[in-house]
């Protein structure tokens, strides 16, 4: 018996889909989820959804970014985000250049702006940037003539992560609206948390923030979500538990007394997860500290864990963002 394949969509359909939007993507840069209104976000997710199908085919190449140059400028080390953007760019036909300035001239005193101006002279079309300082992407966007995508700036935002999380949820649970999502852990230092709080609320979800009081940012009570210290109460009845990565250097008495104490009160294990909704799903932006913020039993349980799906959705979401921004570049010309 022949193996059944899902029906193949021809590549041209997706180019059509990009062009056939009800209205074009309005932003020149993607710096913050705060710049997206609900229809923009839903549009991006629809497009990303279509890319998921494409990415599961054998021939994954498309022409939407043919002739375009995408520069990945990563001042902070990253495996999954950088490779995800690289794959997204290549699948759309762009020329992709990866730069990790930690190892190049940045160490010789060249500033962020100098690097940007130098890069800009090479006429890239899209610039993906990650930097350890909040506001770095926004600063770059003021100084270059191409489109800038924020791939993480300090403790500020990581908008593509929030979009891929939303796509993961939409595909796993049907919709984001009405879901109760508990975001747990080091909220204070997390750009993933800030972007998710913004986007999930834009899409109609209820957000809770759970973690030790020392890892809650100032003014968190004004973010629009409920704040919990007790994790069992925080996840009670939640549809989704989204764990955040804890930097290990914050563990040693600086913000929390010890790893074992943290795991006891805020690590996600089966016992705490039992307080959530029976159909609960678990997410983590990676890379995980197993046994610190999440127990392997939970992380690897295919019935509850969406962690692998998140990685897959990452490529599709980034393809949607890059093609949307590039389509707008075209309009300008």
């Amino acid at each position: 018996m022949p193996i059944a394949f899902a029906p193949m969509e021809p590549a041209a359909d997706i180019d059509d889909l990009i062009l056939a939007r009800v209205y074009p993507f309005p932003l020149r840069h993607l710096l913050s989820v705060g710049d997206l209104n609900r229809p923009d976000a839903e549009n991006l997710l629809d497009l990303a959804d279509a890319f998921v199908g494409l990415n599961r085919r054998q021939d994954k190449k498309l022409g939407a970014l043919r002739g375009r140059t995408l520069v990945n400028l990563f001042f902070e080390a990253s495996t999954r985000t950088q490779s995800s953007f690289e794959l997204a760019g290549k699948r759309l036909g762009a020329d992709v250049v990866n730069m990790s300035p930690r190892t190049s001239s940045m160490t010789k005193g060249e500033t962020l702006i100098d690097t940007a101006v130098t890069l800009n002279a090479m006429k890239p079309d899209l610039l993906v940037v990650r930097h350890s300082a909040s506001g770095a992407a926004s600063l770059l966007a003021q100084k270059v003539s191409c489109s800038v995508v924020n791939a993480g700036d300090g403790a500020h935002e990581h908008p593509t992560q929030a979009l891929l999380d939303a796509l993961t949820l939409r595909r796993a649970l049907g919709k984001v609206e009405g879901l109760t999502v508990a975001i747990c852990g080091d909220v204070a230092h997390s750009r993933v948390a800030r972007s998710n709080v913004g986007l999930l609320q834009t899409l109609g979800a209820r957000v809770r923030l759970v973690g030790p009081p020392t890892l809650m940012p100032s003014g968190v009570d004004q973010w629009g979500g409920e704040v919990f210290t007790d994790m069992r109460k925080g996840v009670a009845g939640a549809d989704v538990v989204m764990m955040l990565r804890l930097q290990l250097e914050r563990m040693d008495g600086a913000f929390v007394p010890s790893t074992r104490e943290y795991f006891r009160f805020w690590g996600l294990d089966a016992e705490k997860l039992a307080f959530a909704s029976p159909h609960v799903k678990v997410m983590h932006p990676g890379p995980m500290n197993r046994g610190v913020e999440i127990d392997s039993d939970v992380a690897d349980d295919p019935k509850v864990s969406l962690i692998q799906d998140q990685v897959e959705m990452g490529v599709a979401v980034r393809m949607a963002i890059l093609s949307s921004l590039a389509a707008r570049l075209e309009n300008q010309r």
Partner: peptide, 15 residues
Amino acid sequence: TSGELAGRLGLPSAP
């Protein structure tokens, strides 16, 4: 200064 703005912008702050 610690507060809603610094928290939202992800800036290191002091009370």
